[in-house]
Design a protein around this nucleic acid. Structure first.
Length: 398
DNA sequence: AGTCCACAGGAAGGGCAGGCGA
DNA sequence: TCGCCTGCCCTTCCTGTGGACT
């Protein structure tokens, strides 16, 4: 009874922390977008011809995650539609995030999604893809209008289904009589465009926009702007914002990361019933986010990767560093005990490299002369994360 | 100077589950 | 429903290599 009472009182106290938590989520569009004035202006200039019924150039936007690409495109698109409605021109914007599993991750699904945006339902499967293209053309060409198709995370789509789809989509324009179609492609893979077929490349990237990472000061401004909406007054210290900005700036100026940090810090404060968000909460949030991503990553690794990592953890309990050979021996023992068919040494070598890539371990290739060449493996994660993962794996295997 | 260890890591391809599209 | 395709995990076979030892 008293326990529940405490939970509820803490919650009510917590209410004094967040005013509007959504302001810290990625889908939130603030009234003014900071430090992207140049990009907004450029994109605006590129898309403006749509207002007089001309086809704007296709645009290719790239920049790392959390640099405001989607936010700016959506913002400009919304404003464009608003003005178009005011002056009676016909502009329609369709936003497609190509990474949505089971929704927009194949050619067929994307076309079905676009048709759906036009209010036409098509079966999940069954129709020839060619038929969907025909229907899309028919739908767009129904009236005189300019359709702007935003393909977010376009690299994920091409990775999955090949670049043929982009060729097909850019080609649609030639079949339109009344309407016009422009494409905005967004990617955070900076080398994506160089890998494309030259004919697609030239038609898709008539214009290019680059979104540089935010620096610590810019992140600070963004956080301050959002914090004002998200938190009650006086709840968040300046130092808190600065810390979030500094951490995110170190990690490639990712604004999403910065906002996540601030949100989680606020949630921790809320849950503990504290009245203010402090720098300690940010530290805890940083730790929590890191821990969660590490644990999620290892959970989704294949069985043998987990076994290899378990072997490394077990060996490092008694040694400061281990070599590939040590890991292989221990791993084989574990497999024998659990009656699991082991993978080859070659495969283990790759698994170790993967674990290093994910940031679980550090590896260094060293030569021991007569005693061969090997990788020296040390742990990169904190003691706390190590314990969590260790007990998780232990529970799984025994 | 040459040898040789204990691997690193590239290339090619097998096999299987599950998804896709007609 | 069913054949085909894809992605993932893995194997096989292989060449490369830094430096202690002879």
């Amino acid at each position: 009874m008293t326990q529940l009472h405490e939970i509820f009182t803490n919650f009510l106290n917590g209410q004094r922390i967040f005013k509007n938590r959504d302001a810290l989520s990625i889908s939130f569009t603030p009234e003014t977008i900071l430090h992207r004035e140049k990009q907004i202006e450029e994109l605006g200039k590129i898309l403006a011809p749509a207002l007089i019924g001309c086809k704007p150039s296709n645009v290719f936007i790239y920049g790392r995650t959390g640099t405001g690409k989607s936010l700016v495109s959506m913002y400009v698109a919304k404003e464009l539609m608003k003005v178009s409605r005011e002056n009676g021109s016909n502009v329609k914007v369709i936003y497609v995030n190509c990474k949505m599993k089971k929704v927009t991750d194949t050619e067929y699904r994307i076309l079905a999604y676009i048709l759906n945006e036009f209010g036409e339902k098509v079966p999940f499967t069954g129709l020839p893809t060619e038929e969907l293209y025909k229907r899309v053309v028919k739908k767009i060409d129904e009236k005189e209008q300019v359709v702007i198709l935003i393909l977010d995370e376009i690299d994920a789509l091409v990775e999955k289904v090949g670049d043929e789809i982009l060729y097909n989509i850019t080609r649609l324009n030639q079949e339109l009589k009344k309407a016009k179609l422009s494409i905005i492609g967004i990617t955070n893979d900076l080398h994506f465009i160089t890998r494309l077929d030259p004919r697609i490349k030239s038609s898709l990237s008539e214009e290019e926009l680059v979104f540089p990472p935010y620096n610590a000061n810019q992140l600070k401004d963004i956080l301050e702007q959002r914090a004002k909406i998200a938190f009650h007054e006086g709840v968040v210290d300046k130092a808190v914002i600065e810390k979030c900005a500094a951490i995110a700036a170190q990690e490639h100026g990712d604004a999403r990361r910065a906002l996540d940090l601030l949100r989680v810090a606020g949630e921790i404060a809320e849950r503990r019933g504290d009245k203010k968000v402090t720098v300690e909460h940010v530290d805890m949030a940083h730790e929590k986010i890191e821990r969660d991503t590490f644990i999620e990553t290892i959970k989704h690794q294949p069985l043998h990767s987990q076994l290899v990592f378990y072997s490394i953890l077990e060996l490092l309990k008694t040694k400061k560093e281990v070599t590939t050979g040590d890991v292989i021996d221990f791993y084989l023992e574990v497999c024998k005990k659990l009656s699991i068919k082991p993978v080859t040494e070659r495969r283990i070598s790759d698994l170790i490299a993967e674990l290093s890539f994910f940031g679980f371990i550090d590896t260094k290739v060293v030569s021991k002369g007569r005693y061969g060449r090997t990788r020296i493996i040390t742990l990169r994660i904190s003691k706390e994360i190590e314990e969590k993962i260790y007990s998780m794996l232990l529970e799984k295997f025994y």
